[in-house]
Protein backbone atom coordinates (compact mmCIF):
# COMPACT_ATOMS: atom_id res chain seq x y z
CA UNK A 1 0.00 0.00 0.00
CA UNK A 2 1.12 3.55 -0.74
CA UNK A 3 2.22 5.95 1.97
CA UNK A 4 -0.79 7.35 3.84
CA UNK A 5 -1.35 11.00 2.91
CA UNK A 6 -2.07 11.92 6.54
CA UNK A 7 -1.02 10.07 9.62
CA UNK A 8 -1.13 10.64 13.37
CA UNK A 9 1.04 8.84 15.88
CA UNK A 10 0.36 8.79 19.59
CA UNK A 11 -1.67 11.98 19.42
CA UNK A 12 -2.68 13.09 22.91
CA UNK A 13 -4.59 16.09 24.24
CA UNK A 14 -5.40 16.83 27.85
CA UNK A 15 -7.84 19.43 29.17
CA UNK A 16 -6.89 19.72 32.80
CA UNK A 17 -7.51 16.22 34.13
CA UNK A 18 -9.53 15.12 31.13
CA UNK A 19 -7.84 13.05 28.44
CA UNK A 20 -9.80 14.20 25.41
CA UNK A 21 -7.57 12.43 22.89
CA UNK A 22 -5.48 9.53 24.11
CA UNK A 23 -2.54 8.21 22.11
CA UNK A 24 -4.43 7.99 18.85
CA UNK A 25 -2.78 6.50 15.75
CA UNK A 26 -4.57 7.28 12.53
CA UNK A 27 -3.68 6.71 8.88
CA UNK A 28 -5.63 8.29 6.06
CA UNK A 29 -5.08 6.84 2.60
CA UNK A 30 -4.96 9.00 -0.48
CA UNK A 31 -8.42 9.29 -2.07
CA UNK A 32 -10.51 7.55 0.58
CA UNK A 33 -13.48 8.73 2.58
CA UNK A 34 -12.68 7.85 6.16
CA UNK A 35 -15.48 7.95 8.72
CA UNK A 36 -14.72 8.92 12.32
CA UNK A 37 -17.43 7.87 14.74
CA UNK A 38 -17.89 7.83 18.47
CA UNK A 39 -20.35 8.94 21.14
CA UNK A 40 -20.63 12.60 22.27
CA UNK A 41 -17.49 13.78 23.95
CA UNK A 42 -15.38 11.00 22.47
CA UNK A 43 -12.81 13.51 21.28
CA UNK A 44 -13.57 13.53 17.56
CA UNK A 45 -13.68 17.28 17.16
CA UNK A 46 -10.63 17.65 19.34
CA UNK A 47 -8.74 15.21 17.14
CA UNK A 48 -9.71 17.30 14.10
CA UNK A 49 -8.52 20.46 15.83
CA UNK A 50 -5.19 18.82 16.59
CA UNK A 51 -4.75 17.80 12.97
CA UNK A 52 -5.79 21.21 11.65
CA UNK A 53 -3.45 23.02 14.03
CA UNK A 54 -6.29 24.87 15.78
CA UNK A 55 -5.05 23.26 18.97
CA UNK A 56 -1.71 21.71 19.65
CA UNK A 57 -1.26 18.23 21.14
CA UNK A 58 0.42 17.45 24.46
CA UNK A 59 2.16 14.56 22.76
CA UNK A 60 2.30 12.78 19.43
CA UNK A 61 2.85 13.79 15.82
CA UNK A 62 0.86 14.61 12.73
CA UNK A 63 2.43 13.96 9.34
CA UNK A 64 0.98 15.17 6.09
CA UNK A 65 2.36 14.32 2.68
CA UNK A 66 5.58 13.16 4.30
CA UNK A 67 6.09 16.37 6.31
CA UNK A 68 5.64 16.87 10.03
CA UNK A 69 2.90 19.43 10.62
CA UNK A 70 2.67 18.97 14.37
CA UNK A 71 2.51 22.26 16.28
CA UNK A 72 2.30 24.34 13.15
CA UNK A 73 -0.23 27.17 13.31
CA UNK A 74 -3.63 26.54 11.74
CA UNK A 75 -3.04 28.84 8.77
CA UNK A 76 0.13 26.94 7.89
CA UNK A 77 -1.69 23.63 7.96
CA UNK A 78 -4.38 25.03 5.71
CA UNK A 79 -1.80 26.37 3.27
CA UNK A 80 -0.09 22.97 3.35
CA UNK A 81 -3.34 21.40 2.14
CA UNK A 82 -5.48 20.26 5.08
CA UNK A 83 -8.76 22.14 5.43
CA UNK A 84 -11.29 21.70 8.21
CA UNK A 85 -14.91 22.71 8.70
CA UNK A 86 -16.20 23.73 12.09
CA UNK A 87 -18.79 21.58 13.84
CA UNK A 88 -20.44 24.76 15.06
CA UNK A 89 -20.61 26.82 11.90
CA UNK A 90 -18.57 30.00 11.91
CA UNK A 91 -19.39 32.03 8.83
CA UNK A 92 -18.18 35.62 8.58
CA UNK A 93 -21.69 36.78 9.32
CA UNK A 94 -21.54 40.30 7.93
CA UNK A 95 -19.83 39.33 4.68
CA UNK A 96 -21.63 38.08 1.62
CA UNK A 97 -21.61 34.37 0.96
CA UNK A 98 -19.30 34.98 -1.98
CA UNK A 99 -16.84 37.06 0.05
CA UNK A 100 -16.73 34.32 2.68
CA UNK A 101 -15.52 31.93 0.05
CA UNK A 102 -13.19 34.48 -1.56
CA UNK A 103 -11.23 34.50 1.72
CA UNK A 104 -10.64 30.79 1.31
CA UNK A 105 -9.70 31.18 -2.34
CA UNK A 106 -7.29 34.06 -1.70
CA UNK A 107 -5.43 32.12 0.98
CA UNK A 108 -5.30 28.34 1.27
CA UNK A 109 -3.06 26.04 -0.70
CA UNK A 110 -0.86 27.24 -3.54
CA UNK A 111 -1.09 28.01 -6.42
CA UNK A 112 -3.31 30.91 -5.45
CA UNK A 113 -5.47 32.96 -7.80
CA UNK A 114 -3.83 36.14 -9.02
CA UNK A 115 -5.89 39.19 -8.16
CA UNK A 116 -9.44 39.75 -6.98
CA UNK A 117 -11.13 38.77 -10.23
CA UNK A 118 -9.52 35.34 -10.30
CA UNK A 119 -10.29 34.81 -6.61
CA UNK A 120 -13.95 35.63 -7.18
CA UNK A 121 -14.03 33.25 -10.11
CA UNK A 122 -12.57 30.46 -7.99
CA UNK A 123 -14.98 31.25 -5.17
CA UNK A 124 -17.96 31.18 -7.51
CA UNK A 125 -16.84 27.79 -8.77
CA UNK A 126 -16.74 26.46 -5.20
CA UNK A 127 -20.20 27.92 -4.52
CA UNK A 128 -21.60 26.35 -7.68
CA UNK A 129 -20.13 23.05 -6.60
CA UNK A 130 -21.97 23.29 -3.29
CA UNK A 131 -25.21 24.54 -4.82
CA UNK A 132 -25.00 27.95 -3.21
CA UNK A 133 -24.41 30.14 -6.26
CA UNK A 134 -27.95 31.50 -6.00
CA UNK A 135 -27.14 33.01 -2.61
CA UNK A 136 -23.72 34.36 -3.55
CA UNK A 137 -24.63 37.96 -2.87
CA UNK A 138 -26.70 37.51 0.30
CA UNK A 139 -25.11 38.18 3.66
CA UNK A 140 -23.91 34.97 5.24
CA UNK A 141 -26.03 35.51 8.36
CA UNK A 142 -29.20 35.20 6.28
CA UNK A 143 -28.49 31.57 5.37
CA UNK A 144 -30.33 28.81 7.21
CA UNK A 145 -28.42 26.05 8.96
CA UNK A 146 -28.13 23.81 5.94
CA UNK A 147 -26.93 26.78 3.88
CA UNK A 148 -24.35 27.68 6.52
CA UNK A 149 -23.07 24.11 6.59
CA UNK A 150 -22.70 24.19 2.83
CA UNK A 151 -20.90 27.50 3.15
CA UNK A 152 -18.46 25.88 5.58
CA UNK A 153 -17.76 23.22 2.97
CA UNK A 154 -17.51 25.73 0.11
CA UNK A 155 -15.06 27.90 2.04
CA UNK A 156 -12.91 24.92 2.92
CA UNK A 157 -13.03 23.65 -0.67
CA UNK A 158 -11.98 27.04 -1.98
CA UNK A 159 -8.67 26.61 -0.16
CA UNK A 160 -7.90 23.75 -2.61
CA UNK A 161 -7.27 21.12 0.09
CA UNK A 162 -5.77 17.71 -0.49
CA UNK A 163 -7.41 16.48 2.69
CA UNK A 164 -10.75 17.81 3.84
CA UNK A 165 -11.90 17.30 7.44
CA UNK A 166 -15.69 17.51 7.72
CA UNK A 167 -17.05 17.79 11.27
CA UNK A 168 -20.72 16.72 11.45
CA UNK A 169 -21.78 18.47 8.29
CA UNK A 170 -24.98 16.38 8.26
CA UNK A 171 -26.17 17.23 11.78
CA UNK A 172 -29.44 19.12 11.76
CA UNK A 173 -30.19 18.50 8.09
CA UNK A 174 -33.43 16.94 6.87
CA UNK A 175 -33.30 13.69 4.82
CA UNK A 176 -33.30 15.47 1.44
CA UNK A 177 -30.53 17.83 2.48
CA UNK A 178 -28.62 14.92 3.95
CA UNK A 179 -28.74 13.05 0.66
CA UNK A 180 -27.67 16.15 -1.26
CA UNK A 181 -24.73 16.73 1.05
CA UNK A 182 -23.67 13.07 0.85
CA UNK A 183 -23.75 13.35 -2.92
CA UNK A 184 -21.60 16.46 -2.61
CA UNK A 185 -19.09 14.60 -0.47
CA UNK A 186 -18.85 11.84 -3.06
CA UNK A 187 -18.33 14.37 -5.83
CA UNK A 188 -15.58 16.12 -3.90
CA UNK A 189 -13.84 12.82 -3.47
CA UNK A 190 -14.22 11.97 -7.12
CA UNK A 191 -12.29 15.17 -7.86
CA UNK A 192 -9.38 13.74 -5.96
CA UNK A 193 -9.76 15.24 -2.49
CA UNK A 194 -9.28 12.87 0.42
CA UNK A 195 -12.00 13.19 3.05
CA UNK A 196 -12.23 12.44 6.75
CA UNK A 197 -15.68 12.95 8.17
CA UNK A 198 -16.99 12.90 11.71
CA UNK A 199 -20.55 11.74 11.68
CA UNK A 200 -23.23 10.51 14.08
CA UNK A 201 -25.55 9.41 11.29
CA UNK A 202 -24.36 5.81 11.01
CA UNK A 203 -26.55 5.01 8.03
CA UNK A 204 -24.88 7.83 6.14
CA UNK A 205 -21.45 6.72 7.28
CA UNK A 206 -22.12 3.19 6.12
CA UNK A 207 -23.26 4.48 2.73
CA UNK A 208 -20.38 6.79 1.92
CA UNK A 209 -17.27 5.79 3.83
CA UNK A 210 -14.76 3.27 2.61
CA UNK A 211 -13.30 2.83 6.08
CA UNK A 212 -14.28 3.73 9.64
CA UNK A 213 -12.42 4.54 12.83
CA UNK A 214 -14.26 4.52 16.15
CA UNK A 215 -13.21 6.68 19.06
CA UNK A 216 -14.42 6.30 22.64
CA UNK A 217 -13.23 8.37 25.59
CA UNK A 218 -10.37 9.68 23.50
CA UNK A 219 -9.03 6.29 22.45
CA UNK A 220 -9.33 4.45 19.19
CA UNK A 221 -11.23 1.23 19.85
CA UNK A 222 -11.90 -0.07 16.36
CA UNK A 223 -10.87 0.46 12.77
CA UNK A 224 -11.75 -1.20 9.48
CA UNK A 225 -14.51 -1.66 6.96
CA UNK A 226 -17.90 -0.12 7.83
CA UNK A 227 -19.46 -3.57 8.31
CA UNK A 228 -16.74 -4.72 10.68
CA UNK A 229 -16.62 -1.58 12.79
CA UNK A 230 -20.36 -1.03 13.04
CA UNK A 231 -20.83 -4.61 14.22
CA UNK A 232 -17.89 -4.51 16.58
CA UNK A 233 -18.96 -5.40 20.10
CA UNK A 234 -17.07 -2.58 21.79
CA UNK A 235 -18.45 0.00 19.37
CA UNK A 236 -21.99 -1.21 19.78
CA UNK A 237 -21.79 -1.17 23.56
CA UNK A 238 -20.26 2.32 23.50
CA UNK A 239 -23.16 3.54 21.39
CA UNK A 240 -25.71 1.81 23.58
CA UNK A 241 -24.26 3.62 26.53
CA UNK A 242 -22.83 0.69 28.48
CA UNK A 243 -19.62 1.83 30.08
CA UNK A 244 -16.59 0.65 28.31
CA UNK A 245 -13.36 0.40 30.15
Amino acid sequence: MAEPILSCRGLTKRFGGLLAVNRVDLDVEQGEILGLIGPNGAGKSTLFRLIAGIMHPNAGTVTFGGHRITNRPAHDVCVAGVAATHQIVRPFRDMTVLDNVVVGAFFGRRPRPHGPAAAREAALAALRFCGLEGRAHSDARTLNLSGQKRLEIARALATRPEVLLLDEVLAGLNPTETDQTLELVRTIRSHGTTIVMVEHNLRAVRGVCSRIVALVNGSKIAEGSPEAVLNDEAVVSAYLGTTHA
Binding site: I54, P73, H86, V103, G104
Partner: peptide
Protein backbone atom coordinates in the same frame (compact mmCIF):
# COMPACT_ATOMS: atom_id res chain seq x y z
CA UNK B 1 -12.07 41.74 7.14
CA UNK B 2 -11.97 38.05 8.03
CA UNK B 3 -9.91 38.81 11.13
CA UNK B 4 -12.40 41.42 12.20
CA UNK B 5 -15.29 38.99 11.92
CA UNK B 6 -13.78 35.82 13.30
CA UNK B 7 -10.03 35.41 13.74
CA UNK B 8 -10.24 31.66 14.38
CA UNK B 9 -12.22 30.98 11.23
CA UNK B 10 -9.78 33.20 9.32
CA UNK B 11 -6.85 31.13 10.59
CA UNK B 12 -8.41 27.86 9.44
CA UNK B 13 -8.85 29.34 5.98
CA UNK B 14 -5.14 30.02 5.71
CA UNK B 15 -4.99 33.64 6.87
Amino acid sequence: AAIRQDPDAAETLGV
